[in-house]
Design a protein around this nucleic acid. Sequence first.
DNA 1: GCCGTACTACGATGCCTATCGTACGAGGGC
DNA 2: GCCCTCGTACGATAGGCATCGTAGTACGGC
Lengths: 122, 122
Amino acid sequence: MTTAAASSRALAHPERDEIRLESVLHALADPMRLRVVRELAAEEDIELSCSYFVLPVTKSTTTHHFRVLRESGVIRQIYRGTAKMSVLRRADLDALFPGLLDSVLAAAARQEGRLGDDGLGG
Amino acid sequence: MTTAAASSRALAHPERDEIRLESVLHALADPMRLRVVRELAAEEDIELSCSYFVLPVTKSTTTHHFRVLRESGVIRQIYRGTAKMSVLRRADLDALFPGLLDSVLAAAARQEGRLGDDGLGG
DNA sequence: GCCGTACTACGATGCCTATCGTACGAGGGC
DNA sequence: GCCCTCGTACGATAGGCATCGTAGTACGGC
C-alpha cells in the first residue's frame, strides 16, 4: 500500500450510493452525534480518535454513537494501532446532498449562539 | 376578525425561538413525515387538510406524524370547520436555519431521482 | 335533532435506541 | 511476555416511538 496502512481490522461502511437521507438526518438528530459531527467538521479532513471526544456518556455509549454515524455514512472510521480514527465523509455527503451538511452545521452554530449553549464540551 | 376565522379549537405550537434543530432533524428523519413536508413544500403557502395526504398508514398514525411535525415547529396547523389545515413554517425555519429546509428538500428530490422511488404516493 | 365526515384520544404492541456495566480483544511500550 | 490503553461485544434496562384499533368529539349539512 502507498498510504499509511490501517490496522488489519476492517470496518463496514456504506458505499456513497447506499447512503440514505433519512439515515443521515436520523444520525444528525441526536445531540451527542451532532456534537461529534461539529467537532469533526471543525477539524476538516483530520482524523480524530474516539478518545479525542470528551462526551458526557460512557465509552460503550460513545462506541454506539460512532457506529450509528459510520453506518449511516456520515463518517469514515479506520483503525490505526489501538486508536480508531474518524473523519467526516464530506465529499460523499456534498455530492449526494449538496449544501445539506453545511446548512446543518450553520444551523447548529446559529442555535448555539442563540441559546448560549455551545454543545461542544472541549 | 379580518381573516377567515379558525375554529375555536386551538393547537399548541412552539414559538419561533423555541424551535430546536435536533427536533426538526428528528421530524424530517421519518420517511412518512418527510413525504408530508415535501408535499407541503410543493404547494407553497397553501393550507392542506390532513385528508389531502394519502399515506400508507392509518388515520391515527397520520395524526401522530402531524403532531410531531407541529410540535417540532416544522408545520403550523389550524382548524377550519371539521378539517385541520397544515402549512409549512417556511419563514420561521428559513429565519432560524437558513438553507436547511431547501437543502433537505433538494436532497430528498435528488435521492428520489437516484433511487427511482418517488416517495410521493400521488 | 340526526347523521356523516374529519380528526383525536387512549390503550396496546412491538421495535428501536440511548444508556450503562462488565468482560473481553488488539496493539504498543517496556 | 506483561501490562496498559483503546475500543468492542454483550446483556440488561428503560424509555421512546411508529403502528394499530376502537371509541369518542367537533363541526357542517339536512
